[in-house]
């Protein structure tokens, strides 16, 4: 078919080989051409910064307990990162939608017709999602840390410094946790292929179930529960160690990363085997 005439209604272009870079570009176009992407990203930044600042302002001068979220020690760090707990939900939902949306709309058939090998689509979705979310979330979290600490110390309340033991790890760990759960969301979206079901599973099973289980089950279960995704993450997002119910920060990081890898491997296996 190389000798087609130039008067063809299809013109005379010759496409180039499909590579990971080209699929990445395709997925980046898909992500940036949906208005919901931008709305969600703005919401994430606003939630992390605004809620952190409000929390710092309201609480300056006294240490109050903030309800919700996984158990953690309440200190200045938890105050300014209050918005991050809400951002976790938004990012996880965004991930689930990124993973499931094409299956819901039928677009996946156009996508797989262009990339029948399929796996480059998965890698590209994950890379684009991470490349967009990680800088935005990391910058927001670091920004709210410095702004929030200024509010607290300005009001004469207790504050911590970036150089204090474990603070930088907790702040950056929070960014990693948020984006990591988003990646797990993408994988679950691909596994379940339905946006509604994926959102339910991500929020319910990954975020709320561990907290619920540790509240309801006897303490003897803590040895197991600390390996669940959100609990393993609390080990490196918390500002200090809260005892035997959590892993050490290093182990927590490894366990949480293992959950991400497991989710991705599951999505990869299912994506290549299942009829689309």
């Amino acid at each position: 078919m190389t000798s087609l005439t130039t008067t063809s209604p299809l013109g005379s272009i010759e496409g180039r080989p499909t590579s990971l870079v080209r699929v990445l570009n395709s997925e980046w176009i898909k992500m940036r051409t949906l208005r919901s992407t931008w709305i969600t990203l703005v919401a994430i930044v606003l939630v992390i910064i605004a809620f952190g600042l409000i929390s710092a302002m309201v609480s300056s001068g006294r240490i109050s307990t903030q309800g919700g979220g996984p158990p953690r020690s309440v200190g200045p760090l938890s105050l300014v990162l209050a918005g991050a707990n809400l951002a976790v939900l938004i990012v996880a939902v965004m991930g689930a939608i990124v993973g499931a949306r094409e299956f819901s709309t039928g677009m996946i058939r156009a996508t797989f017709s262009a990339v029948p090998k399929r796996l480059p689509v998965l890698w590209s979705k994950l890379i684009v999602f991470t490349a967009v979310l990680l800088p935005i979330v990391a910058v927001s979290v670091v920004a709210v840390f410095f702004l929030g600490m200024r509010v607290l110390s300005g009001a004469g309340a207790a504050s911590v410094a970036w150089s204090d033991d474990g603070v930088a790890r907790s702040v950056l760990g929070t960014a990693f946790y948020i984006v990591g759960l988003g990646i797990i969301g993408v994988a679950i979206g691909i596994l379940l292929r339905s946006t509604a079901a994926s959102i339910g599973v991500v929020i319910g099973a990954v975020i709320f179930l561990p907290a619920l289980a540790s509240a309801l089950l006897p303490d003897s279960w803590d040895e197991v529960l600390k390996y669940l995704p959100s609990n393993s993450a609390t080990a490196f997002t918390g500002s200090s160690q809260t005892g035997a119910t959590l892993l050490t920060p290093g182990t927590g990081l490894i366990v949480f990363t293992a959950w991400i890898v497991l989710a991705i491997v599951g999505a990869a296996v299912v994506l290549t085997r299942r009829d689309a």
Partner: peptide, 23 residues
């Protein structure tokens, strides 16, 4: 299937995304 497109994307952006896979 004619309806194998994302409803939230314009026709041009749909084609840009698909075309990007072959440069």
């Amino acid at each position: 299937e004619a309806k194998a497109v994302d409803k939230g994307r314009s026709a041009r952006n749909h084609l840009l995304a698909v075309g990007a896979t072959i440069g």
